[in-house]
């Protein structure tokens, strides 16, 4: 160990502020780099599961309104294509 006491580590004879500031920023950015994809994977997994349930619901015999809404969605998405 180069330093003999915790105080010396914090102070680093005057340069402590800059060194610890640089390391703090780096650690937060690196943590965000690692954490973001994991969170994104979890969010997308929940979406897939939710989509699975929506799909399961729409496969069973639907009530009239749900069926019409699906029909409307389908034709709407077709005509929104301006040209083939």
């Amino acid at each position: 160990m180069y330093f003999d006491s915790i105080a010396a580590v914090i102070d680093m004879n005057g340069h402590g502020l800059y060194v610890w500031l640089a390391y703090a920023i780096t650690v937060t950015l690196l943590f965000w780099l690692l954490w973001a994809p994991l969170r994104q994977l979890r969010v997308r997994r929940l979406w897939v599961i939710a989509e699975g349930h929506r799909r399961a619901v729409s496969d069973e015999p639907q009530s009239e309104s749900a069926h019409q809404r699906d029909e409307a969605d389908k034709t709407f998405s077709d005509s929104s294509e301006t040209q083939g």
Partner: peptide
């Protein structure tokens, strides 16, 4: 880099930022 390695004789401890920069 932060606690064991010696500081640079010219720049002192601020040199420790080299280990992430």
């Amino acid at each position: 880099g932060l606690l064991v390695a010696p500081p640079d004789f010219r720049q002192g401890n601020s040199y420790r930022i080299i280990y992430i920069h």
